[in-house]
Structures are given as C-alpha cells and as structure tokens.
C-alpha cells in the first residue's frame, strides 16, 4: 500500500506540532487513542473571545496516516469558528488525504480528537461562567 503524496507531505513536514498550556482557560485539549494499534493523538485549540480558533497544535504517536490526519486537522482548525470545527467529519479527511480503507480509523481518531478538544474547551468555559454566577449570588446575598 502506497501513501498518497499529501500524506507523505504532512508526514515529512507536519504542521503545527507542539503543545499549548492545558491549564489555560482558553485552551481545549483532546487526547484520544486507538488501543489496537497503540496510536495516541493529542490535539489542542486556543479559542478567542469571539469563539474563533486562533491556534491549533498536535502531537501524535502513530503511523503516517495518523500523523497526517492530525496535521491536516490543525490546518483546518486554525482560523475557523468552534461551531464550524465541530462539523468537521472524518470523511473529509479521508477524501483530502486519499486514505485507503485500512487507514480510515486514523481519520476517525482525528475527528474524535477535534471533538474532545472542543468538549474540553466548552467544559472549561461553562465551569468559569458557573463560578462567576456563583460569586454573583454571594455578592447579592451580602448586600
């Protein structure tokens, strides 16, 4: 089985490799894995106040297709809104990278990682707004 040129390109020159501070409230982190093949994918997004993804980073331990899928995902994520990012489907990744059927699970992993990162960011956001709501009640009770 031969890798497509696009997979090779992402594999040899992966985009946006690295990490963001996972404790930053504006950063969402998704870590997912495929136990059968021992692949792990970490994908992180930094979201601004308007809900736009301003930065995306990844680290992947796995085959060329897994690396390419996550590298491509970070390219697509940057500059898009969180809501649009949530709509990204693994089939789009398959199409763009011409992944063969045996490598489709790599694109599924990338989609899962995107969803997990968004979920993490949303959880952080709602926890924060929950806190400020609580402090509001306390302030009212005091006055």
């Amino acid at each position: 089985m031969a890798y497509s040129d696009k997979v090779l390109d992402h594999y040899q020159n992966p985009r946006n490799v690295g990490s963001l501070d996972k404790n930053d409230p504006n950063v969402g982190t998704g870590v997912v894995g495929a136990p059968e093949c021992g692949d792990v994918m970490k994908l992180q997004i930094r979201v601004d106040d308007s809900g736009k993804i301003v930065e995306a980073k990844f680290k992947t331990y796995g085959c060329g297709s897994a690396i390419a899928s996550s590298s491509l995902a970070t390219e697509w994520l940057k500059g898009t809104s969180v809501d649009a990012a949530a709509q990204i489907k693994n089939t789009q990744i398959v199409e763009e990278l011409s992944l063969p059927p045996v490598k489709i699970h790599c694109s599924v992993l990338a989609e899962d990682a995107i969803k997990a990162a968004i979920e993490d960011w949303r959880t952080k956001k709602s926890a924060l707004s929950g806190k400020s709501a609580l402090s509001g009640i306390a302030a009212e009770a005091k006055s």
Binding site: V31, V32, G33, E36, K42, Y61
Partner: peptide, 20 residues
C-alpha cells in the same frame, strides 16, 4: 472499553516521546 482515560493517554504519549 476502547476509550481510555485522557490522562492515561497523555502519559502514554509522553512515554512514547521519551522512547523516541
């Protein structure tokens, strides 16, 4: 039970990096 705890996976990723 394929979905493993993200904290574990993050550690696994670090181990893989250490190995590499």
């Amino acid at each position: 039970n394929k979905k493993l705890d993200p904290t574990f996976l993050a550690d696994a990723l670090e181990l893989a990096e250490e190995v590499a």
